[in-house]
Simulated assay, not measured.
Amino acid sequence: MEIVPDLRTRSELLASGVTDAEVRRLRRRGEVTTLRRGAYCPATDERLRDPDARHVLRVRATLPALAEGSVVSHISAAALHGLPTWNVDRDRVHVTRDAAGGGRRSPTLHAHIAPLAPDDVVTVDGMAVTSVARTVVDIARDLPFEEAVVVADAALAAGLETALPAAALERAGRWRGTPAARRVLAFADGGGQSVGESRSRVAIARAGLPAPVLQWTVVGPDGRFVARTDFAWPDRGVVGEFDGRVKYGRLLRPGQEAADVVHDEKLREDAIRAQDLAKVRWYWADLAGFARTAARLRARLNL
């Protein structure tokens, strides 16, 4: 039996008969991971391998030690809602309190002070968390545009009604960052199906290219379905696709190998091109410097 099953605090361990010396020994051996000072979990916990799941563990370890009325917010709330994040610091837990003061920031905690309307707070796994709409607005106010769009797109794709973050933003009034949040909400689109696709949309816009149609369906002359593409400029006969590579593994059916999926993808590309469509594909590495991909798109679009 593990001395530290799941998440345990120092006080819980001492109450169960585990000594400080035993905990120190487990830490030296690498058998437990410290989530915050005085909170541990087994190093074999699979959730530690996933950045978002690890952050949720850190939130669970931190919240009981905070002042009453602390509500999980910002990227910590995004993790609890299952919304993906990109290029964010997951070491720091974010909470918000509706109070006159007491905000603070440390390497492990950012306690925000801001009003919280009743509709702004929900319960997730027994914890008070800002609603998806409020979370999107808070992130859009605080994070850079591209990072915020990733979260906003994912929330809309998961079914968030656009009116809800708009209402949350309206309640924010003249809070810091509201102009930036308006830009994020105006740009957000639930048609983005992944972090890479959201980042691609931002890159396309920054390159000055026309906004694409998202998740466009290609049909043959007989009206039959051919494929669905990530991006399309139908009036110019061009489609674009972001290839995160990981999707090949996700598409594997029982008994199927990666080579089979790659072959199927090749047939799919041939079917798309057979409809007199030009196709441009790009990868994760291309998003860091999109100029070459933008030039390829511009050439295909005859701009």
Rank of each mutant, 00 (worst) to 15 (best):
V136S: 09
A111R: 15
I204C: 04
L185M: 07
P51H: 11
V218A: 02
P118Y: 10
G220W: 00
Q256T: 06
D222H: 03
Y40N: 07
S11H: 09
R58Q: 13
L214W: 05
H94Y: 11
A299I: 01
D276T: 08
A114T: 08
L48K: 08
D189I: 05
R104F: 12
E22R: 15
R273F: 05
R25P: 04
A53H: 12
A117D: 12
H94L: 03
S131H: 02
T9F: 13
D235M: 00
G190D: 13
V218R: 02
A21R: 15
R171I: 03
D264A: 14
D50L: 10
D222A: 15
L35T: 02
A291K: 13
R27C: 02
G103N: 11
R49L: 13
D50E: 15
T135C: 11
L214S: 05
A207W: 00
E12Q: 15
P179N: 04
V71G: 01
L116P: 02
V238A: 13
V219E: 14
A203Y: 04
V137M: 05
R49P: 00
I3K: 15
E2C: 01
D142H: 15
G289W: 07
T44R: 15
Y40L: 11
G126V: 02
P107A: 04
L214I: 07
R134N: 08
A61V: 07
A166E: 15
E241W: 04
E46T: 14
G159K: 03
N87G: 12
E197V: 09
E257G: 01
R141G: 05
S73R: 06
L164H: 02
F145R: 14
R49M: 11
L109E: 13
A181H: 13
R8F: 08
E46I: 10
Q193P: 05
L164F: 06
A285W: 03
H263T: 09
V219H: 14
R141E: 14
L185V: 05
V88I: 04
